[in-house]
Each structure stands twice: as structure tokens, then as C-alpha cells.
Amino acid sequence: MTYEHLDVRIEDQVAWATMNRPDRLNALNPRLVEELRDFFTGLYWRRDVRVVVLRGAGRAFCAGLDLKERSGDNADRSVGAGLTGQRRISEIVIAMRRCPQPIIACVDGAASGGGFALALASDVRIATPSLKMNAAFIRIGLSACDIGVSYFLPRMVGSSVAAEYMLTGRFMGAERAYQLGLVSRIVEPDALEAEARDFAADMLHATPLGLRLTKEALNHAIDAQGLEAAIAMEDRNQILCAQDGDFGEGVRAFLEKRKPVYATRES
């Protein structure tokens, strides 16, 4: 797919994906939805990309669904067509969790509605002081349970805090998000990219297999049926990683205090 609103640049095994509709605060129109879904779905098979950085152009991360473009759409309004359209959006966050690459979200400014969901579906969130997140759906006549928010948010902040924001649509600022553990760092906008690069560089010290299996196990551990199920996944991961050809290089690089050089695995 040729992208119109999503700029993707691959640099040293890191994919920098930028939602590029700054005049609309990177709101999700049908084209951007298709591009995000195509990009994250395709990552499952790629070996040349090991980390993803997701960000928005201009002064916002993503302001959610583009209601102006939607209101001008004269397409089929049946329940079946609506469900298909809804699934086109929700499949993005499923693909984000399924892809083996860790996703670092650089959240500057507004992250509302669908933008909030994209931030929550990422693995690490870095924010600026201007961050404003909310479950905007409930403020426009819909349920706040949308695009995975009802799954992610209570698991991250607990049911009471999740209910507070989902039942009211209130905005959450950077300091509150940091206190709740939703964001890992708060930095000024001009330091956002450097902070993401630091995270990505640390992740790239892991072997390709180790990094992928760690994300996979973290995903499953959230819903694991108890301690023994989680440990079974951990044990499996350690044995698989120890048999991988990159394991020896990882140990040598650690002992020699240098950057590891792993075998290249193209898709």
C-alpha cells in the first residue's frame, strides 16, 4: 500500500511511523485507518524491523476519529456496514498487540478517542507536558468502551480509575498519567525523539528473538490463569532464547561492554 497520511521511515531496525494530518490534529479518517491497519498487520512478518516508534506530526498525537469527514460520508448506514467499519478501526490495536515489535508511543498534545486507544495499545508511552488523553467516545453519544480501551485501561490503572475516566470522558494530563503509570517519562517536545531513541537503543541490546518473545509473554501474562501458567511461558522463552544463535553474541557483548551485533534476518 502507498501511504498518504502515514509516514514510515526505517532507520537501524527502528520504524518511525508518523501520523501526518497535522491540520486535523492527525484525526483518523478512513485513509489513515487503512494505512495504520496495513502497517501494523504487516509488521508480524518483518524481521528487518525490531522496534516501532509511533508519533503524530505537528501539535497533537491523534485527536481521534475525524468527525467532519465522517459526517460527510454518505455510505451505507446499516448495522452490518457499521460493524464492518468499526472492525476496520479496532483491528489496528489487535495488530499492535500481535506484532512482535515493541511499540514506543511519543504522545504530544491531544490523544483522544481513537488516539487514546493507540497510545494504550503501545508498549511504552513517552509524554510531553501538553498531553491531554481522554475516552472521548462517551462525549459524542457513544460508549466509552471502544477500540480496546475497556481492556487496556483497567488493567493499567485499576477499575476505579478506569471508570472515573471512561464514565465521564474527563481529560487526563501528563502528571496524572505519570502518577498512574500510564506514561514512563514526561519530556519537553524537543526532547521527545531523543528519549524515544534512547528507549529503542536499549531494546536493541536484546537479541531479536529475546525481544519478540518478551513482548509475547508480557501480553499473555496479563491474562494468564495464575502464576504457574506465566512461569511456564517464561521457562519456554528462556530455553528457546538459549538455543538461538544470537544468544552467544548477547553474552559476549555484555561481558565486553559493547553494542551487540546480531545476525541479520530479513523478512
Rank of each mutant, 00 (worst) to 15 (best):
V149A: 07
A121I: 03
P154H: 08
R97V: 11
R155C: 06
M96S: 06
I103A: 01
S143V: 05
A136W: 10
S150V: 05
G173E: 07
S159L: 14
G181L: 01
I103W: 07
I140L: 13
R125L: 13
C99Y: 02
T128R: 07
T168D: 05
N134P: 03
P189K: 11
P189L: 09
L182W: 02
L167T: 11
M172R: 03
S122H: 05
M156D: 11
V183T: 07
I104D: 08
Q101K: 12
A162C: 08
R97P: 01
Y165F: 14
A162H: 00
L153Y: 04
S150Q: 14
D123C: 08
R155V: 06
L142E: 14
M96W: 06
P189S: 14
A162D: 03
M96P: 04
G148K: 03
I103L: 09
A136K: 12
S150E: 15
T168M: 10
E188W: 11
A177Y: 02
L118A: 04
P154I: 03
P102L: 01
A105T: 07
Q179C: 06
R139E: 13
M172T: 00
I138V: 15
G158A: 03
L118T: 04
I147M: 13
A95V: 01
L153C: 09
E188K: 13
I94S: 14
E188F: 12
A144E: 06
V149N: 01
A162E: 00
A117Y: 07
V183C: 05
P102E: 06
A177Q: 06
M133Y: 01
I138T: 13
L180D: 08
A110T: 08
G113H: 04
C99V: 05
Y151Q: 13
Y165R: 01
R125M: 13
A163M: 11
A162P: 01
L192F: 08
I94P: 00
G113F: 11
C99A: 15
F152I: 02
E175P: 00
I94G: 12
C106S: 11
A163H: 09
M133E: 02
G114Y: 01
R176H: 12
A144T: 00
I94W: 13
T168G: 09
D108W: 08
K132M: 10
A127D: 04
C99H: 06
V124W: 10
A111P: 05
P102I: 01
T168L: 10
I138C: 12
V124D: 08
L120W: 01
F116T: 00
R125H: 05
S112E: 15
L192V: 10
S184V: 04
Q179I: 00
A121M: 04
L182Q: 07
S159I: 12
V183E: 00
R155A: 11
P102T: 09
V161I: 14
N134F: 09
M166R: 09
V124L: 14
E175F: 05
A95C: 10
A174H: 07
R125C: 12
M133N: 03
V183G: 01
